[in-house]
């Protein structure tokens, strides 16, 4: 049984561990630098990135995390995790926050705005479908989500999200939190660079496990998963079912 580390400072680490369990993989909580030595791959979950950065600083986790990324071990960041992995982030709190870095891109923290602008969207994910099968789209849950403004040449874009559909949301919220108007109609919300994977949305909040199995394959850790995962992929009703579900808990 393979073991995946999940950074458990704050946020949706329980949900990630539950998603891994559904795939027959054990996730362990990482709270201290020395615990990173026992795992070969790492998930940085969603949460408040400022909070997670503060706690990582207090417990001196940043050097160990940077070393982990530098050694080329697979790391996946969702939402706050994406901000952690980015080389550059804008829209931070006064005084900035610590980043792990490694992913050659610029992230706008809280790009979509406050909770009233949080949304769900069906994302087109050709790369993931070619690897994992299943429906053509993925239900992306964006919670006060970041977005990727630009990427370096080595970064592969896995998904984009239209922003035009949100513009009416922005105007309806009484002109609060004006942000720079993006001329493009789509922003990047999922990328991969070598062994780094990053998503601005939260696959751990849905019952669709394809991103998790994609990450496990990336880590080259899952031996017999390809057969079992694909057989799930064929059965589309399993994915449809989750539409009106309550969120995923442990």
């Amino acid at each position: 049984m393979t073991i995946v580390g999940v950074l458990a400072l704050q946020g949706s680490f329980n949900e990630h561990i539950a998603a891994l369990r559904r795939l027959g993989v054990k996730g362990v909580e990482i709270r201290k630098p020395e615990q990173l030595l026992n795992v070969a791959s790492l998930i940085i979950p969603g949460g408040e990135s400022t909070t997670m950065a503060k706690l990582a600083e207090l417990h001196n986790l940043f050097p160990a995390l940077r070393e982990f990324v530098r050694m080329g071990k697979p790391v996946w960041g969702t939402c706050a995790g994406l901000i952690f992995l980015a080389n550059k982030a804008t829209g931070q709190k006064t005084g900035g926050q610590g980043l792990v870095g490694g992913l050659d891109c610029t992230v706008h923290r809280n790009f979509f705005g406050s909770q009233l602008q949080s949304f769900e969207s069906e994302l087109s994910i050709p790369e993931l479908v070619s690897s994992e099968g299943g429906p053509e789209t993925f239900r992306g849950v964006f919670i006060r989500a970041p977005a990727i403004l630009d990427v370096g040449p080595e970064v592969q874009v896995l998904a984009r999200c239209p922003v035009s559909s949100n513009s009416n949301l922005h105007s309806s919220s009484s002109g609060e939190g004006k942000k720079e108007k993006d001329s493009e109609s789509k922003v990047i919300v999922a990328v991969r660079q070598g062994n780094l994977l990053a998503t601005a949305f939260h696959p751990e909040l849905t019952s669709d496990n394809r991103w998790h199995s994609y990450f496990l394959k990336m880590a080259g850790d899952v031996e017999e998963s390809s057969s079992s995962i694909e057989s799930i992929g064929v059965n589309n009703s399993r994915f449809e079912r989750s539409k009106s579900d309550l969120p995923i808990f442990i």
């Binding site: 946020g11 949706s12 949460g47 006060r144 939260h202």
Partner: peptide
């Protein structure tokens, strides 16, 4: 509920 889930452990 999603935002509340992001606040977990905080």
């Amino acid at each position: 509920v999603g935002l509340a889930q992001m606040l977990r452990g905080g």
